[in-house]
Design a protein around this nucleic acid. Sequence first.
RNA 1: GGGGUGUUAGCUCAGCUGGUUCAGAGCACCUGCCUUACAAGCAGGGGGUCACUGGUUCGAAUCCAGUACGCCCCA
Length: 878
Amino acid sequence: MSISTKYNPKEVEKKWYDSWMQRGFFHSEPNPNKEPYTIVIPPPNVTGVLHMGHMLNNTIQDVLIRRARMQGKEACWVPGTDHASIATEAKVVAMLKEKGINKSDLTREEFLEHAWEWKEKYGGIILEQLKKLGASCDWDRTRFTMEDDMSAAVIEVFVDLFRKGQIYRGVRMVNWDPQGRTALSDEEVIPKDTMAKMYHLQYEVVADSASTEPTYITVATSRPETIMADVAVAVNPNDERYTRLHGKSVRIPLLGKVIPVILDEYVSIDFGTGALKVTPAHDLNDYELGQKHKLPTIDILNNDGTLNEQAQLYVGQDRFAARRNIVKDLQETGMLVKIEEYASVLQTSERTGAVIEPRLSMQWWCKMDNMAKPALEAVMNDEIRLHPPKFKNMYRSWMENVHDWCISRQLWWGQQIPAYYLPDGSYVVATTAEEALRLARKESGNNELQLEDLRQDEDVLDTWFSSWLWPISVFNGFKDPDNKDISYYYPTNDLVTAPEILFFWVARMIMAGYEFRNELPFKNVYLTGIVRDTQGRKMSKQLGNSPDPLDLIEQYGADGVRAGMLFSSPAGNDLLFDEKLVEQGRNFSNKIWNAFRLIKGWEVDESLSFPNETAVAWFESRFNEAFIQIEDHFSKFRISDALLAVYKLVWDDFCSNYLEMIKPAYQQPIDKQTIDATTAFLEKVLKVLHPFMPFITEEIWHELKERKNKEYLIVSAWPKKEKFNKGVIEKMESVLNIVGAIRNVRNSKNIPNSKQLDLSIKNLSGTNYEPFLGIIRKLAGISEVSFVSDNLEGAISFVEAGDEFFIPMEGNIDVAAERERLTKELEYTKGFLASVDKKLSNERFVSGAPEAVITAERKKKADAEAKINAIEQSLAVL
RNA sequence: GGGGUGUUAGCUCAGCUGGUUCAGAGCACCUGCCUUACAAGCAGGGGGUCACUGGUUCGAAUCCAGUACGCCCCA
């Protein structure tokens, strides 16, 4: 037999992936005779490379889709990528810069040409990487959020929502990324804990008459460079320190401009000095305060973060340079009282890392409140289930406090907003320029207008404004709402994604589902955790703590990596990734491989009788029991638990126990009935293992037997739930306990495995041990078994299931040690009995507890008493 | 500040409907084995007041309240 003792995944994985592709097993077409099962991939950024998060996420999707396929459903997993406007544009800008080209020197068309070229060349690598993982996506259906159809859907949706009054244009406070020079949604802003400085500045109070000494009010701010944009100083009306200032005005330091003191309970008395400078253009809270008190707004920043003319001072300087300079100048004039360090949260851009500038700007907005309602309800009433359900609360609080969505981005890569400005500044919204012209002529009453007179809005839409349509648009549901694909596959079944994007993607897809199809987009949302390193740190490029997934696959095999990722990742929990887990996954592959080698290596002798009836009957039941558990785990999306249950079934039950029971002596042949049963068991085991470890299972499946053309494991029938015999399982459990006890004796007495032992059984329970004697002999290395009615002298004894067992020790038994061991066990059992007795003598327990519990307690009592009796007898004969 | 969530073995975590799956798994550790499927393995073993304090209950790791510490989301 020349099969290697080590499983070698490399060529096996490539072979089977190609073979599956060739035979079209991943491809799906609507089939009215089958139940559809659909997953749409969370489209990774087209610029992305596979990281550990993707690995986890896509492994789970593949497990679900493979199981569904085997269950006979029409399984369709739609892959694709997202155009990721900011990330991609940043990459392209950087690439151009390396070539010495500035974006600002290019026209929009030129830039987009470069971008597309870049996308064609480098985009979508990640999809190729997913194939290495074994992802069984329907690659014929691969989509990209900026391909023509998808973009058309985005534009159509924009126009539709605009006509419904759900989209508007307005000046609002936005998160401004001065580096990317674009607005960001709240979700694209990452708060970072930092130590910041709090500057205490003096504002001179404008005196009633010129004669009095100047007085000052101290204001605390973290952003001294914005004082030129101040329009008021606010204090709490209940703050007695400042009562004297009610109705007064103050002078801005350096600038000398006079601004009023206003009163508002919003100001917290204990924070800073209790006096707040109000800068509506550069702080969200100040903006709201300004609106409330009808204060003007003075915007002193350019879109690149430098100061503009409105600032009057430090014009043209970057905001941080201006801060350094103003601090120096304030110090020199004595208006800076002190600088304090305090822990603060810095808002930064997810894409560029720049510090976010709250900024007033004209943007496009999408109203959320109407759409949020059905989306909230669907989750609250479990039409859409979140796994784990703890995310429901979070979802609710977000949806109840939902803000309008800023959907415009000052970028070129993406869907350009279909708004067209007329020369007079008014605008129309239309899917095409031609239609826009028609509308413009109609609305303006000016039939002389030409296409050249219209100017399309420069901005593009937020990436998520295309992603939220994904489950519908991948099936062309906008252009052709009743096509056979969308009618069949939509609503999809399960969505697997990270909790980080629960709001800006998942929630919005739900809204889009109800808004555009009156139907939920998916039924279950499985939320994975974040993959962290062993120290609990998020994996990141900067930290360099993330292993390269492809290296891992190279080293441990895709199956090993998949299993490793799943071993410790219950839904919604972060996964502390340790390469040890992948090693365990690899070892598991090897274990299965060797079980296969063993079975494959046996010679069959058809003349032999069938000696393994008990073992076969037991494993049959055990498989069915485990399978029911596995299915239960799956039904509750406990993927990790399902794998662990399979793992134990394979390793403990099948390999350590079953195969050892039936294994013929060295170089002896096996009987026909046993080999047939065992082959069938292995096939069943391979089936339940296949979704987790597709490659090795397919390999063994084909090596085990000749298979016809399309008889592949990937499309074989998932096992059915069947009844099992609980009694058989329990009996075997106690037999295995006996084996364990004998092995323990062997170990503690240093008796080598090669030395056979004898066993005497004092059968008090009336159990029929006959069918199990062969198993006990084989697994525990016993030669003679005898049944006795008296205790054996000079033997080590133990009790199991009410019966006593003796192993003769040929006189060299350590009486003292044995006595000690038995005494200890006796003490323990007596203590145990006492606690059971206490319970049973408690009348309220007996009357209050259910019958089954009481019976169980009575049985415990009887067992304990029998055991005490047996130990005492053993002690007596020692 | 508001809301959520967690704290179980050295580590990572299960424990779902309160009671035999109730204190468990994997890794790590210790002992002994290269026993012809597998040393990427086999056999055995040690290790936990279930964060703390109270309450409900015949019975609490499990339910409730509070405290401490951690994490997440929103401000």
